[in-house]
Structures are given as C-alpha cells and as structure tokens.
Nucleic acid binder design. Structure first.
Lengths: 342, 342
DNA sequence: CTGAAAGCGCTAACAA
DNA sequence: TTGTTAGCGCTTTCAG
C-alpha cells in the first residue's frame, strides 16, 4: 500500500555512516548505552530527519514481542464495555502498547478462533472479559504459559489475576436499600449461572436476604439465560406467570433491569409504584430512563486501567505471582426504587 | 510467551519430506495449484496433525500484507459505533481479515499517532469514522495511496469512497413530521460545523423549512461544539436564554437530543407537552427514555458492512474507481413529538 | 564501542 | 512439479 517508501533502518544507518546494527542499538533505549553517545545522537538525529519509523512487524519477528495485547470482549454493544476499553487503552498507550479488540458474541467457538488469531499475531498477553465458570480454553492457555488477566468475571478453580467488582458488596447495598424502603419480598433475576458474576451476585443476594431477615423463598430467585434485556424480560415474565408475589427486583445487571421495564409496560405495572427495580453497573444514560434506574455504580474505566496495569506487570515479570483486585462499589439511588405500595 | 513452541513451516516441510517452499505452496490456496495434488494433500494433513498455524507476521514481512485493516473511531462510548463495528467485523471475518480498532477521542493528534501506528503495523487499509470537513491528514494519506473508506462522515473536496446516511432525507423526514403535527417554529441544534453530517443536516434543515413554508429565522439554528449531550444542552440553553420562541427541536443527533432532555428537566419544560424533540441515529435504548425519543433510524450495522465490503474491494483492486453509497433512512416516531400546545 | 553475520518464518523469483 | 536461493526489516550473538 505504501507508495512512499518509508525509510528503513538501513537507510538511517547509511545516512549516518554506521552499520545497521549500530543504528539499531542507538535507536533502542535499552541498548543505547552500548554505543558512543555522539554516534547515538547522530543516528537519532538522522532517524528524525528521515522520518524513520521502526517496523514493529520486523522487530516482532525477531523478538517474538509485538507491543500488542488482545482484548477479548463478549459483546461490544453492551455499553458497559466501552468504558473498560477506554481505561485499558489509556494505560496501554502510555506504555507504548496497543490493544487488539475482538468480540466473541458469547460464542465459545468464536472466542477460540479469535484468541488463536491473536496469538498468531504475537500478542503478548490477553485481557479477558468473557470468562465462564467452566472454561477449558482458559485452563489450556494458562498451561501454555499465556499471560492474561480477567476483567469483570473469572473462571472457577484457576488461579488467574483478575479485576472484578465486589459483587457481594454491590448486591448487599441493593438489598439493604430495598429493605430500608420497607420491601420484604424481593426477587433476584440472576445472571447466567455459568458466570462468576451471576453466581456470586445470587449467593450474595441469598446472604443479604438472610442477614436482613427478609422473606426467604426459593421462588424469588431465577436465573437469566443471558446478560440481556430479552433474557431479563423472559425471566420476569416467568415469575409473574407463576403468580409469585413480590414488590421489588434486584436485577443481575442493568440490561436485565431494562428487560423488566419492558415487562412492566406489557403488563401495565408501574415502576416504582407497583414494583421497584435495582440494576447493576450504572451503564450510560440510565439517568434518562423512565423511570431513572437505581443501580450499583461500577468504576468501569478504573477496572480497565487496573487490568491493563496488571497485565503489563505480568508481561514485564512473568514470575510475579498472580494478583487479584476487587473494586469497591456504591449504590446510585434514582427513581426506580420507592417504598412498596401499602 | 509461547512455552509450547508452535510448529513452523519448516517443521511441516520436514515432517512431510518436502522443501519449505513446497509446503508453503501447498498450504496457500492461491498457489496450491502449482503443486502435485497428492503432495498437497499430504502436506496439509501433516500441517493439520502438527497443529501448524502460519505466522502472519512473518508472512506480512514478506508480502507487505497483514490481513488487517484499521478502524478509526472518534469515540467508542458513543453507542452508535458498536453496531457499525459489528457490521464491519462480520464482513472482515468472512474474508479472513481482522480489524484493529482505535479511538481518537476526537483529538486530531491522537488520530495522527494512531494512524501512524496502524500503518507501521502494515494495515492494508482504513475505515475512518472521524472525518472532518477540513482534514489534511486524509488528504495526505490519499496522496500516499493509502486505501480507505469513510463511514458516516466525509471530508470536503476529497474524492474518497464513503458510506453515509442520507442526511438530507433524514432531516427532511423529521421536519415534515413536525410540520404535520402543526409546528411552525422549529429549532435545529446542528452538529459541529467542521463535520459533513453537521453541515449537511443543517443545510437540509434550512431547505426543508423553506420547502414546507415554515418560519425561517436564523435565530432558530445553532451549532453545537461537539456531538455530545453537554454540547446539546449548552446550545439549547443559549437558545432559551436568548428568548427564542419555538415549539420543537430537530437535534443533530441523539446525544444532542439527550442534552435537550437535561435542559427540559432543569427548566421545568415538558416534552412533548411544551416542546417536541427529534433525534438522529436511533441508538440503543432510546425507546426506554422518558419520553421515548422520536428519531431517524440509521442502519448502522449495514453501514459498517458496506464500508468493509468497499474497502476489501479497493484492496483487491486498487485501480477500481471510488464508489460512495448513501443509505436510506426512516423516521421512528416515539413519544417525544406531539402537536404544539395550543 | 562498532562491524560482520546470521536468522526470526515465510514467500517469491528462478532454476531444474 | 519441485527445490534453491534470497530476502522482507530488524535484533543479536560474536568478533574485532
């Protein structure tokens, strides 16, 4: 594609009157010390004026380093991910890395293929947002010594570094808020039970209900098949059709909560008049919904940044032990929660 | 990172008892014809069992082709882009390409740096969603023979392939809808006037107002500094503070419309009771707003897919003349528009 | 401190 | 049809 041939290391070396090897050393901060300071300066200057840009591909071929990391997302159209991506990129960029984003659409096959492609492109590590509790692929990657850090969710039984929200605290906050408003029969529409966030939040829900002395009825908990509006709507419809009695819903995440909104409209239920709802994530634009959604606020950008930092550390020093971070959460009270009707 | 050394072409060749060059030919669909069918089969089988994966980096070094294209976005957190990305990836993937996504945050400097990085990574072309009317960088790239296609917006005076919504039709639809409801004094909060979408929509607005015989007052049009809620809010506040009289707003896009919602809340205005609003793009979740936003629906995924197709065509045959596509739009009438108060 | 030489994994002439 | 030979642009021994 070029047309204008970008100058190569040889060109710089020739112009500076040195051997390419010397030019290489002069241009690389790591090896610059090995070369005469004056020569180094001269080479750098020539490189500058020639507009020399090292070819990372050629470099990668030699060093097996590419300056890239892979970013594996389940679904880019879920608004919670862009802020994570942003946080990641801010850190990577500062470190001279770039992230290659792939979308799996929650399909393990696509995931496998994408990860393979990325590996063949020599990514130096992965940030993975698609973890499932059972995740053989991750296990395999770990065995093969691939560097990676999990964001948001994590697999079970694998000791992998991860940055996740403190799900238990988030749910506890939600349930307590509803209890304080006077709700006694609270539904939990859990996320898929093959994800850590799904089960951790469901477990936290049960604990909170018990600790706060609320009504404890298995019929009040259902799992959604996906983290989506449709799945949330379906789960709530099932609950309603079964005649379950409740005055509030703790949704596994914001999209599931939005699914509830759809069902409220279908069934002529008022929110928060007839039923209150709490979401999870605080994705954008929630404040403009009808009604504005009360939700658990998650520092997505910070999650991303932290994950990137961890990964870069691991790449720099693979022997360093895996570290995991739980990020603190807060509840954002908006208009979707109110005391139950008397 | 590897740990398990992935087998190289040499390994395959050795195992199959042929020369690496033969193995290469056998493995590449394009050159497979040059090799004995039996040998080819054998090589492929060996490659299969060895788990051989070609190294695209090494290949790229030789061929100056990388199988990647660069995707330049102004802001990934704007919900209109993920669907475009999805459309692009669907096509690229099918063609064995992958897209490298970068975010410029509307910063020309970041844009320049990112594009340079991508070029050094040998992307074969670009899909660019950051075009400004005046865009020296694009001009330079075009001069240098870089393949690219514009999505959504385009620069002025450069003959570059583009896939854009039919802005004029979209605005015309909006204004006509409002006129039919009985509105006579309609405000347009235009997008930034350094973008083609901003000015094209503003021009279309003026034309529609004239054609429909509505009130034509320069005070009814303002430009927003960005495609954002904040900028939209600011523009509307200015309008209100100036005492401009109007009953409806045609917003440059959905985010600007959302900014209007904020101002309505601040100033105690009812929508659509006191003032109607129409957006542009039909980004996700608009149906759940208070009130649901009437907007122009844009086939984002199709835009992305079409752009990817165009780019792949151009890469395959650079001599082919630049083609541009205007995609048709429809109006999605929701709850933010109603007849003006009497 | 610098140059020479080799090679990362692959493909593309050119010969045979 | 296959093998030989180079070489993509860079880094990295190893000598000097």
């Amino acid at each position: 594609m070029p047309a204008v041939q970008t100058p190569t290391l040889r060109d710089v070396a020739d112009a500076a009157g040195v051997h390419p090897a010397t030019a290489s050393r002069a241009l690389n901060p790591g090896t610059r010390g090995l070369v005469n300071a004056d020569t180094a300066r001269r080479v750098m200057k020539v490189a500058e004026t020639l507009g020399y840009r090292p070819n990372p591909i050629a470099r990668g071929l030699k060093t097996a380093k590419s300056g890239t990391i892979g970013l594996v997302l389940p679904d880019l159209t879920n608004p919670m991910f862009p802020p994570i991506v942003r946080g990641i990129e801010a850190i990577l960029e500062a470190a001279g890395y770039s992230g290659l984003i792939v979308n799996t659409d929650n399909d393990p096959h696509r995931e496998r293929v994408h990860i393979e492609t990325l590996r063949s492109r020599q990514v130096e590590g992965f940030i993975i947002a698609t973890a499932r509790l059972e995740h053989p692929l991750l296990e395999q990657l770990q065995r093969e010594g691939v560097q990676m850090v999990m964001v948001n969710r994590r697999p079970e039984g694998l000791d992998l570094p991860s940055i996740t929200p403190d799900d238990a605290v988030g749910v506890e906050l939600s349930v307590r808020h509803l209890a304080e408003l006077g709700h006694r029969r609270i539904v939990h529409l859990a996320g898929p039970d093959n994800t850590s966030t799904g089960v951790a939040r469901a477990r936290a829900f049960r604990n909170a209900v018990r600790d706060l002395g609320l009504e404890h009825d298995p019929a009040l908990v259902a799992s959604c098949s996906h983290w989506s509006e449709e799945a949330g709507a379906e789960a709530l419809r099932g609950m309603l059709d079964a005649g379950t009695d409740f005055t509030a819903v703790v949704a596994g995440n914001d999209l599931i909560a939005l699914g509830c909104y759809d069902v409220f409209a279908e069934r002529g239920l008022q929110c928060p008049g007839d039923v209150s709802v709490v979401g999870f994530n605080d994705m954008p634009f929630l404040d403009k919904l009808r009604p504005p959604l009360t939700t658990v606020s998650v520092p997505h950008q910070q999650i991303g940044a932290e994950a990137a930092r961890l990964l870069l550390e691991a790449i720099a020093d693979p022997s360093r032990p895996a570290r995991s971070v739980l990020l603190p959460l807060t509840l954002k009270v908006r208009g979707s929660t109110a005391p139950p009707a008397a």
